[in-house]
């Protein structure tokens, strides 16, 4: 089996699915000839032609709005939005149309499509290229939001997303695009949407994370071994709908939790998770849940970016604080 990074795993998923299902088309800025600015769609246009791998005009709302139309007419579009900051112009189409077409038409019209977006910070990118908009999306009815955290996961989740009957926002943590290599099988497998992954079991405290923050959580757990703290890590991998059972079961076991996300703190997904725990597992808690998050500020430029990103030290400190409560 080949060891692939996340870019290659996503490329493989697209390649396989396009080979199997001619309804699948890829569209976006620079996805064709260039193969995407991160090379995620590299070689696909050569293989599948310019009708199925389409370099569009530079217009994000146009990309996802027409993807909706193509989905209505039986295609399975996989749209790429080049960077997180340029997803914002799509929000009109996503919230007002894509997320509610099924509901508004009482199921008569549906638009199963995937919008892939490299997201998050940590690569010293220019302004507007390091955003974590997942909470906005999770707050939007009618769409599902999936975030892989490893190459293997990315392939299985993307295949599942393309086959979903509902629209899926597929956020790719660009910081770990090439940072992790692991065995990714060729051929078909899917990972169910809406199910979290138990990354590692532990008895003392639960860390809930997703995307690039799973790796940070793993590093923190490793360090915390030195303090004899046994950390359980849950990778949400779908943030809408959230796998409530996975979180609640873990908290019932450990009684303590820390949530890690890169997005700003206020109204971040951490707030939702804490509310869910309060609703469903309050009496199992031995300490208040803590959050390690970004701040309520625009992501700083590269010289100050390190201030913003959750890091090992902040996670370890939070875990100890919760343990010592």
């Amino acid at each position: 089996m080949a060891k692939l990074n996340m870019v290659e795993a996503i490329n493989l998923a697209l390649r396989e699915e396009m080979g199997k299902d001619n309804r699948v088309v890829v569209l976006g800025e620079d996805v064709g000839r260039e193969g995407g600015v991160f090379r995620v769609t590299d070689g696909l246009q050569e293989k599948f032609g310019t009708d199925r791998v389409v370099d569009t005009p530079l217009a994000e709302s146009g990309i996802v709005g027409t993807a909706l139309g193509m989905a209505l007419y039986g295609f399975r579009p996989v749209a790429e939005i080049q960077f997180d900051g340029f997803l914002y112009p799509c929000l009109d189409q996503i919230t007002n149309h894509i997320g509610r077409m099924r509901n508004r038409s009482r199921g008569r019209f549906i638009c199963p499509l995937v919008i892939r977006v490299p997201y998050g910070g940590g690569i010293h990118a220019p302004e507007h290229h390091s955003e974590s908009p997942e909470a906005i999306l999770a707050h939007t009815p009618g769409i599902k939001v999936v975030i892989p955290s490893t190459p293997y996961e990315a392939k299985g989740l993307l295949l599942a997303s393309i086959r979903e009957p509902d629209p899926v926002l597929f956020l790719e943590p660009k910081r770990i695009y090439r940072a992790i290599r692991e065995e990714v099988p060729e051929g078909d497998y899917t990972i169910p949407i809406g199910k979290a992954r138990m990354v590692q079991e532990g008895k003392d405290i639960t860390i809930v994370a997703w995307g690039a923050m799973v790796r940070e959580a793993l590093n923190a757990a490793e360090e915390l071994k030195g303090d004899k703290i046994d950390v359980e890590i849950i990778d949400l991998r779908t943030i809408s709908p959230i796998d409530v059972d996975a979180i609640v079961n873990s908290i019932r076991k450990t009684g303590r939790g820390v949530i890690v996300h890169e997005a700003p703190k206020t109204c971040g997904l951490g707030a939702e998770i804490i509310a869910l725990i309060n609703e469903k597992a309050f009496f199992s808690l031995q300490a208040p849940i803590d959050r390690v998050t970004g701040f309520d500020i625009p992501v700083p430029l590269l010289k100050s970016e390190h201030y913003y990103l959750p890091n090992l030290k902040r996670i370890v400190t939070a875990v100890k604080k919760v343990m010592n409560f």
Binding site: R33, E34, D55, P57
Partner: peptide, 11 residues
């Protein structure tokens, strides 16, 4: 050009 996209397919 807009990155890789030539003017003639932009509009």
């Amino acid at each position: 050009f807009a990155i890789s996209v030539p003017r003639k397919i932009q509009t």
